[in-house]
Structure formats: C-alpha cells, structure tokens
C-alpha cells in the first residue's frame, strides 16, 4: 500500500510539472502582469522553482508528508489549510451520497431477489440505461427545477443544513443506484445458484438464514471492491455537483485554481485523492479478507 501511495506522489508531482507549460509564465499571462525577466526570476526564487526538479520533488514530498502542500500562487496562503477545509465539505457530500447509494440499492436489490421480481429487473435495467446517459449536473438542475422551484419543498442551493444537502447528495447518488441494484441483484442470484446453497436448503435451513448468512455474506467481497472504486468516482462527481448547487467544496476551489494555474493546489489535490483512493482499495481488500478466509492467504502486504 505504501508503494502505491508513493506512486501517487510521483504522479501528483511530475504529472503537473512535466506538462510543457511554465507555471510562472502562465501565471503572469493569466493575471495580465507585465512579463519581465526579473519578475519571473523573483517568483521562481520564491517558489524554489530554480532548483533541480528532483530536489524540488524531495522537498515537496517532505513537506507533503507533514501536510504542507506549499503556497498558493494566487493568494500566497498555505494550500493545505484551504484544501483540507474545503475537502471536508466535498467528503461530506460524497459520504452522504455513498450512504444513500448503499441504503436504496441495498433495499431494492435484496427485495427484488427475495420477492423474485422480474419487474424490478426490467425497471432497473431501463433505469441504468437512462441514468448512465444523463449528465449528473443536468439531472441536478432538473431536480432543482422540479423539487425546489416547482414544488418548493427543498432549498435551492447552498450548503450547511441537512435540507440543503438532500438534493445534491441524492443527485450524486442517483447515477450509481441503478448500477448497484443490478450488481446486488445479479450477484445475489449468482450466489443462490451455488451448490452449497442447495445443500443448505437440503438441510432445511431457514430461508432468512440462507439469505443473510450465505447469500448476502457471499456478495460482500464483490460489493466492497466495487464500492472502493465508487468512492473515487463519487469524489470526482462531487466536484461537478458542487458547481450546480453552489456548494463551497473542493470542486469549485479547484476550478478557480485551474483558471489561475495554481499548480500547488493541483498537486495537493491529486495527492489527497490518490491517497484516499489507495486507502479505500486497501480497506476493501481488508474487509474482503475478513469476510473470505481464502483471500487472507494471498494478501497481507502493507
């Protein structure tokens, strides 16, 4: 896992730095400052950009480990503070969506299997097709228009109260719900087909025990692995949803920083996202190993 995180630091740093645009010149261009040699040199000096790249990486990594992502070009304030405080908003939005996804798709998915609903299957298949094709930001606006403007139930925009978080979280979740209903349904049906379920039935084991102990437990590993991927997707999706609902999360900050070529922000952001992603996957592996004893033998590297 540490190796993976180290890989992420490499990407975060070099990806941004290897892009053939000089951040300093870009900065001047964008802010309409007069480009003079001295001015550029001054900024370079200030940001340590005149040192060798590898040296810069070492320095950046040392600081990053201590949660110091450098200074913003734009505001001259530390990036980490701003990034982390906004990130907590995004994380909250993504987490809310995450639980909505699990709750709704779990209930419908399990219900459709237990009740043998062919109708649910056809319905979710159509829903997957539809939601996969709709841009989430557009869906957000449609929901705002219908729920907030027409019905006047939920607040329009903003962030902070529970009511304000319902629509964005739901919008974000909606794209994943049909997918998870299908995932849960098909993997449960697959699990039910397994011979050991037939043997459990042959022993007269209660249907509720079969569903809980055998079928649901059996689909957990696949579910965990999928959810880890979804966590990353939700964070990315949150950045868009924030723009729709005017939520002061990291997405907006990122877009503003991009406009200003504030590469320290970009580096810090990728580092956080990548690290989180690695951690999510590690957690998923860990949970899989807890559920499935056979997975324990293969894994176990940190």
């Amino acid at each position: 896992m540490l190796a993976a995180i180290w890989g992420v630091t490499l990407v975060s740093f070099f990806l941004i730095r290897l892009i053939p645009v000089d951040p300093v010149e870009a900065y001047f261009a964008i802010n309409n400052l007069p480009v003079t040699e001295e001015a550029i040199e001054e900024i370079r000096e200030e940001q340590g950009l005149n040192k060798p790249l590898l040296f810069q990486y070492g320095l950046w990594l040392m600081n990053a480990v201590q949660l110091d992502f450098g200074q913003s070009f734009l505001t001259k304030t530390p990036v980490a503070e701003e990034l982390l405080s906004r990130f907590s908003v995004t994380l909250g939005l993504a987490a809310a969506a995450f639980f909505i996804v699990i709750a709704i798709s779990g209930i419908i998915g399990i219900w459709s299997v237990v009740k043998q609903g062919g109708l649910v299957d056809r319905f979710t298949r159509a829903l997957v097709f539809a939601t996969a094709s709709m841009p989430s930001f557009w869906l957000g606006f449609v929901l705002v228009y219908v729920v907030s403007l027409k019905w006047g139930i939920l607040p329009l925009m903003g962030w902070g109260t529970i009511e304000q978080s319902v629509l964005p979280a739901f919008t974000l979740a909606l794209g994943y719900i049909p997918y998870y209903i299908r995932l849960i349904r098909t993997s449960m049906l697959e699990e039910i087909e397994k011979p050991h379920i037939a043997f459990a039935r042959a022993r007269g084991v209660k249907e509720s025990i079969i569903i809980r102990r055998h079928v649901l437990k059996g689909i957990l590993p696949a579910l965990f692995t999928s959810l880890a991927m979804t966590c990353g997707g939700l964070l990315g999706g949150a950045a868009i949803i924030e723009a729709v609902f005017a939520i002061p999360g990291v997405g907006r900050y990122l877009v503003e920083s991009m406009a200003a070529r504030d590469y320290a922000v970009l580096q810090g952001f990728i580092l956080i996202i990548g690290t989180l992603y690695v951690i999510f996957n590690f957690l998923a592996d860990l949970l899989c190993a807890i559920v499935d004893p056979r997975a324990r033998l293969k894994r176990g590297d940190i």
């Binding site: 993976a4 890989g7 992420v8 990407v11 990353g232 997707g233 964070l235 990315g236 999706g237 950045a239 868009i240 952001f269 990728i270 996202i273 990548g274 992603y277 690695v278």
Partner: peptide, 8 residues
C-alpha cells in the same frame, strides 16, 4: 493511473 478517478 488507476489510482485516480478518470474524471478527476
């Protein structure tokens, strides 16, 4: 590259 969501 797989460690970073596509969109981001």
């Amino acid at each position: 590259l797989m460690a970073i969501p596509h969109f981001i």
